[in-house]
Design a protein around this nucleic acid. Structure first.
Lengths: 339, 339
DNA sequence: TTGAAAGCGCTAACAT
DNA sequence: ATGTTAGCGCTTTCAA
């Protein structure tokens, strides 16, 4: 049984009362310098660490924050988490990371567990399947600080940070059009997601501005967000089977982008007749396929901002009523690769 | 302030004592069916969740386990974590994931924090820089169940699980030799790591068995494990600059493999004169470069096994004295890609 | 300057 | 079958 030393142990060893030890360790003003030194020295010598559970129970404060993301094995999220951690670490907060695998049930369980585990706040990027937000609303109403990032929702009023999905998408589509593509198909992520709709809207607007028709036949939904390769391959096959074949594919998400490239390769599609452009934060995407252009989100930065927002919520003395939704621009990586 | 309902609240609302409520909720045998129903119904209606901090404090048991890995943005680890979670979830355990970015300090902080946070056990894969294991020894001596996976160490006696690094490496090198390669260079990970040495040993043995000389000139160390691209590129440049250029590169780690491919591409090395083979668990590695052969570790499976071992340690009635180090075979993906 | 005591939410003897 | 009480480790009045 793992049993670290307690304040009581120190008190007994030093013939002091627990309260004195507690105050000494936290540098309380009432304690004499001498006692403080004795206590801290001894505490260090036995490598004393306070029990966070007891502290949380007492203080309703844990100096840890919970992170809920769909998938760690997704570059965007692991980069965002790195950003979150960098800020959290500086401010003395620990991070507890959980993943949902895009399951609403797991999402609810994780969020509730974190809340009960008395994290001081929650950073969440929604799962693709979630349509019922009551569990979050309840937590939020009960006073748990929540910040949404990337996959945000309208239903809860708080700080949010997301990418300029519309613009990123618009520019990428523009670029395809400029390069002469006439029939641009889309592989879209689950339609419940904010990011999906924004990205699709950017695509539509680009078509419109170029007086090109929007053709629903060219849209394919990948409800599993690219986690199910077969779903993506089927979508690609059905696009290739169209009598009026598309000459480009625009993809609204990272995992789908990868799966699409794989599918095109395995179907022996000609990379010259089929241009591919999509959102991706994979760190190897530039190595994948000669002509793959992509939109990259500033994931690390988004993580940092999200954590800063959460800190603001947590550490604010009075309730915050003015909330901000930050939109971070994306980077477009076209074919002419510099650097 | 987030403040969930407590057992006391329920007790007051239902005019019962806290202990009755507690027992009813945990289906205690002493409680009448009627009371049980009343209590559970009410608890459900207000969405009562027990406070894990209080439980941990009381029971010295948290039903959560801590995970310490170098880097989440590394396919191997995110896959291993998925394996860990799958077992943990089935057994009612939560996982708390932390990453060290290969910093010993972060590693120590994380491990200590998790231990104090009263996780019931620890799953750890060592950071590349760590040479002082006293913090782990201390935790272990104090009774914290620890299981090592992948990057294991000899210094602590407990359950461990790792890959057949020697054999995987041996076979990959054999394969390079069979295909006619004569001068096989190596990009090696930090030499502190168990996996680095095992993989290097496999390489050496393959040379030996083929009566080929081991040439230290062909070995390059990447102490940053591929996180520092420049380090890898420099290594590649220096290999290409050799008067007697290597005709193959064997790489002992995932991140270095990726960086090496990128470096070769940016240096315009001819993929036909320079064969590349390395360890990688990236899910896009097969798309990267036509002739890249790779050794894949069974990461998910390793995670599952590690978690099972940890459960055994945690839930064993009496102290375990017989420890096992499981070695899991690797998959070699050569050039003839089926499927 | 220090100590005693109560309480955070929960459980488990020990009553009743 | 249910209630009372003490205690997990810590902080914080209140008292000395």
């Amino acid at each position: 049984m793992y049993k670290p030393a307690t304040i009581k142990d120190i008190a007994i060893a030093l013939n002091l009362s627990p309260s004195t030890v507690s105050r000494a360790l936290r540098d309380g003003y009432e304690i004499s310098a001498g006692t403080k030194k004795i206590v801290t020295d001894y505490a260090n010598s036995i490598n004393y660490q306070s029990n966070p559970n007891a502290l949380s129970l007492k203080n309703k404060r844990s100096f840890s924050i919970g992170i809920v993301v769909p998938e760690l094995a997704n570059s965007f999220f692991s980069q965002a988490i790195a950003g979150i951690e960098s800020v959290a670490y500086e401010s003395g907060y620990h991070t507890i990371i959980t993943q949902t695998h895009d399951s609403s049930t797991r999402e609810r369980t994780n969020a509730n567990h974190l809340a009960n585990r008395s994290v001081d706040g929650l950073l969440i990027s929604m799962s693709s399947g979630t349509t019922d937000y009551t569990f979050l609303k309840t937590l939020h109403k009960n006073g748990l600080p929540i910040v949404f990032f990337d996959r945000i929702i309208d239903e809860i009023e708080t700080f949010k940070v997301t990418s300029a999905n519309f613009t990123g998408s618009y520019n990428a589509t523009q670029s395809l059009i400029k390069s002469g593509r006439k029939r641009i198909a889309v592989l879209a992520n689950a339609p419940q997601l904010s990011i999906t709709n924004e990205r699709l809207a950017g695509y539509k607007k680009a078509l419109e501005d170029n007086k090109m028709p929007y053709n629903a036949d060219l849209i394919r939904w990948c409800y599993k967000g690219g986690n199910d390769y077969q779903e993506v391959e089927n979508a690609v096959i059905s696009l290739l089977a169209l009598t009026d074949q598309p000459d480009a594919i625009f993809i609204t998400s990272d995992r789908i982008s990868i799966s699409c490239i794989r599918a095109l390769k395995s179907l022996n599609a000609d990379p010259n007749t089929m241009a591919v452009t999509g959102f991706s934060n994979s760190d190897v995407v530039d190595l994948l396929q000669p002509n793959f252009c992509y939109v990259r989100q500033k994931a690390f930065e988004m993580g940092q901002i999200a954590m800063q927002m959460l800190l603001k919520l947590i550490e604010s003395k009075y309730p915050i009523t003015e909330f901000e939704t930050r939109v971070i621009d994306t980077e477009y990586h076209g074919m002419e690769k510099e650097n």
